[in-house]
Design a protein around this nucleic acid. Structure first.
Length: 111
DNA sequence: TAGCTGACCAAAA
DNA sequence: CTTTTGGCCAGCT
């Protein structure tokens, strides 16, 4: 499937994130074999709003489990609401028990 | 082609 | 805790 661009690969991987789970840009980059391209993942997320089908970008956080991109969803609290709606608790713009809800595509993408 | 951009990451102060 | 610094790389103009 070399037809897929890096962006498309990112979208495909993000769409595999199950509900109630989150992952990080770096984890996605590593899963795609581009550990150094964590920034590109975030950049791709910028286009995620125009991607089809839409990608659950609210499940993608930075390595600290912080909602760094909450403002990019059109409303500062939308990202947090979406996560809490899936059972992910947010406190002070940070995911509670980040380790527990963290979804590592390298080990769980085979679902 | 070259340069700029960025929803990042990690370490240091 | 916050702020700074350097590195990283695909896509866009």
């Amino acid at each position: 499937m070399e037809d897929l661009n890096f962006y498309e690969s990112v979208y495909a991987l993000v769409r595999q994130i199950p509900e109630g789970r989150v992952t990080s840009y770096g984890a996605i980059a590593r899963a795609l074999g581009r550990e150094g391209s964590a920034r590109i993942v975030g950049y791709a997320m910028g286009n995620a709003g125009k991607a089809n089908p839409p990608v659950p970008a609210h499940r993608v956080l930075n390595s600290k489990g912080q909602l760094s991109a909450k403002a990019a969803f059109g409303h500062p609290d939308l990202m947090q609401q979406l996560l809490e709606n899936e059972g992910v608790k947010i406190n002070n713009d940070r995911v509670v028990n980040f380790k527990s809800v963290f979804w590592d595509p390298l080990t769980e993408e085979l679902i």
